[in-house]
Design a binder for these strands. Structure first.
Lengths: 466, 466
DNA sequence: ATGTCGGCGCCCCGCCGACAA
DNA sequence: TTGTCGGCGGGGCGCCGACAT
């Protein structure tokens, strides 16, 4: 890999997929994978250090099986709530049946890390991915019915599709697009009707039936660097694939996760995890630098102001604000003093009025309806686009923390009260700290129809604010 | 349960399915489940004692994921190669997407058992299930094309379907059949053409497309005790559902199985397994009495004659004979002295000429073509229909063995040489001993086209013979 | 006994602009 | 700007017996 510290998906992950027998298959386009995963997903870069949360991994399995953990899981007292790991490898995958995207990561627990490792992780974070041009549309009843084709949003057609020859009557062309598996789909793109509009006609119904799409699912188009048209899907139907339960019991799965992590931690041997961004409630493999910033650059306390990113229905992002209303262990028996979902946050009602920042590929939508904004309630880790409020509580800089790590006695004494006395003079150099992994409950400050919307998110991209 | 010792599926398993949230769903018809599972599948009865083989369980996962076990699996030195368990519960399931049948079993390791338990297990074995009337047909290209309907085998239509009114011209009726999920399918059943034949026309294409069936898949019809028509499917496409790999790594799955069993064995606490009869190479939960008969009623030795049951293409059964050519550990490092696949068997060429016993619901097929006979190479545990050969090596009777169990010093000294000296006078009371779990490699005694067919089966219902 | 095919009737898929939101 | 609908033309679904194996 030429640029090991790059954080963008395109360079962070080797975009190859191997099946169970080790046969190399078609590679997966990283930009398309990213588009299908959603705007807030950001995989850590291979070769960097990460923090792995067994609780979060277990949560993903529970979400995939729609089943909570049972009581018969043995304790693994030697398995800490978080593991410092070296991320050896990241490969992108897509389910051949459903096109669901997921990533495979090979992690190796390490007992310590050096300054270079931390800096590499921080550098990978800062390199923002080049947002490729894409558009995403939720399919309507007309789009998916057998009665007609696909109505293309005007801006999308003009921005993504090759330009039409308007001297033709009507203007039309043949579009060729490839999906995640490199399958080719061809559509007739025509500009007709009264008033004029862009339509995909011939070939569209084959796509709809072939991918088994229904109204409410989403389809997206992007152009890669070679100006090739790619397309992907995102299913609205969030019913968990209960399929896996025919192979392994839920208990065995959870035990398998914990035992595999415990075994790897005891032997410092590599282990493999799968991260499914659209099934998992939260990322459970966090870049070391991001983890540091979340935990050590701020003094987490009750009443602290909070900012978090959500994904909107149309694949946009939206800030949301709230206040920390509680700090406690999610599972005090099994995972004591874990930072996984130890914060409760009450969300502001007023933040619904915040304007969503315009992003490329995002249709213009100025709706302030909270219900629609949060229909896609799966939370995501956000880009580091949050600005630090000058009145934020003081924290430690990256350099300060590294120095403390090299001075064990000092690090050991690093308590909230001590941290509070440190100077926050270098804070402005730090992007917002992502605390999403710590967020548990979402509480509305006002009883209204909004309660329906905010019940679902359990965690999301979050930043402390004043 | 009225008859706790019954071994038939209908009474052995509670035919209810619960989803992940504990909501009771429609019950699954046990006869239909049995028909879909195949003629050789025989689930142990709830309430009886069984022997659980972690190796076999792991094999099922490997087969489901089409991936062998990797090296990174930790050793579980305290987990024996077989666990004596009390089978608390058996529930029948069917995958809602694929109709694949599987069973969920709750096992609790026990350190000992009494005479009643052994007798109950033996009693459950002896109760033969009432073979319901059914027929099974492999779909042809014409059956699955959009050009026409389904050609019903004559005997099948006469035996299973309600009789037609032949005063009509042409004779026709509407058939209503329910699948495993209690979904209703209606077909027009007509007797027409030159020469006359039974056909399913209107409604058939909806079924084919709805179940996503292709030529080579099989469809089966049965009548339940209320004369209701039921239908099921068996897919020929044995491609493993790689879906589960998007949730959990193969390593974690294997670790999960072993760790769950080890934890349950250490605490004598219950654990849950899923048995998928059409994906698993062999059953890995064996009735205690069947295990006993396999291991203790015969002196296993090199050169011993061997008999095993296979499932034929048309859902029939077929005996196959061979000779034990080797006895050794499948995995000497991890599972020393395990009885799982420790026998190699060379199959007789001449056994291809054996007549298959006529069974209800099985179309007449006197083909002696070995290739076609063994196309369905997945092996199954068979019914106890094998007769004991008078010249068989001597073994222990059930009563003798029980007495030895109550006399530890005697049981401890129970060695092959010792057993050989015992009288075999009560042997005729014993059905053939099923050794299928121990069979590993299949070696043809003659190089020919038959080699292709016999490479695949790794184990099947087997009995020692002279 | 039953798998495949030519014939062909008619259903419904799918392309069109009209309209409205 | 774009979702839904009536209109309608034609491709293919699906029912039929012929024929072969």
């Amino acid at each position: 890999m030429k640029s090991p510290a790059a954080g963008a998906v395109g360079t962070a992950a080797t975009a190859t997929a191997t099946n169970g027998e080790g046969v190399e298959k078609k590679s997966i386009n990283p930009e398309l994978w990213q588009a299908c995963a959603g705007p807030l997903v950001n995989l850590p870069a291979a070769g960097t250090h990460v923090v792995y949360f067994p609780q979060g991994h277990s949560e993903q399995v529970a979400a995939s099986m729609k089943k909570d953990v049972d009581a018969q899981i043995p304790n693994y007292p030697n398995l800490p709530s978080k593991l410092l790991c070296l991320l050896h490898n990241v490969t992108l995958h897509a389910d051949p049946e459903t096109d669901e995207v997921y990533a495979q990561m090979t992690l190796q627990p390490v007992s310590s890390f050096d300054k270079d490792a931390l800096l590499r992780s921080d550098l990978a974070l800062k390199s923002n991915k080049p947002q490729t041009e894409f558009f995403c549309k939720t399919l309507t009843a007309s789009d998916t019915s057998t009665h007609g084709g696909f109505s293309v949003p005007r801006r999308a057609a003009e921005k993504i599709f090759p330009p039409l020859d308007f001297s033709m009557q009507p203007p039309a062309q043949e579009l060729v697009a490839r999906d995640l598996h490199d399958n080719v789909w061809t559509f007739r793109h025509i500009y007709r009707g009264q008033p004029k509009r862009h339509l995909l006609t011939t070939g569209w119904s084959l796509f709809i039936s072939g991918k088994r799409l229904f109204a409410g699912d989403s389809v997206l188009f992007i152009r890669d660097e070679k100006q090739q048209l790619l397309l992907g899907i995102r299913r609205a139907n969030r019913q968990p694939t209960n399929l896996s339960s025919s192979v392994l019991s839920s208990d065995s799965m959870h035990i398998g996760i914990l035992a595999a992590a415990a075994h790897a931690a005891a032997n410092n041997s590599p282990f493999t995890v799968f991260y499914n961004p659209r099934a998992s409630p939260s990322e459970f493999v966090i870049p070391l630098a991001k983890y540091y910033k979340a935990v050590y650059s701020n003094q987490i306390s009750l009443g602290m102001r909070f900012r978090m990113m959500f994904e909107t229905e149309e694949s946009g992002t939206r800030r949301y604000m709230g206040t920390i209303t509680g700090i406690s262990d999610l599972d005090p028996v099994r995972w004591k003093n874990s930072q996984w979902r130890n914060l409760q946050v009450g969300w502001d009602e007023s933040t619904a009025d915040l304007k969503r920042p315009r992003q490329p590929g995002m249709p213009d939508d100025d709706s302030s309806d909270l219900d629609s904004l949060l229909k896609r309630t799966m939370p995501w880790l956000g880009d580091d686009i949050c600005m630090k409020d000058p009145q934020a509580p003081p924290g430690l800089s990256l350099v300060q923390w590294m120095n403390m790590q090299q001075n064990p006695s000092l690090a050991h004494s690093m308590q909230p009260n001590y941290m509070q006395s440190l100077s926050g003079s270098v804070l402005q150099n730090l992007p917002g700290a992502d605390l999403s992994l710590s967020v548990r409950h979402v509480i509305t400050s006002n009883a209204s129809a909004k309660q329906r919307a905010v019940k679902c998110p359990k965690a999301a991209s979050a930043s402390t604010t004043a």
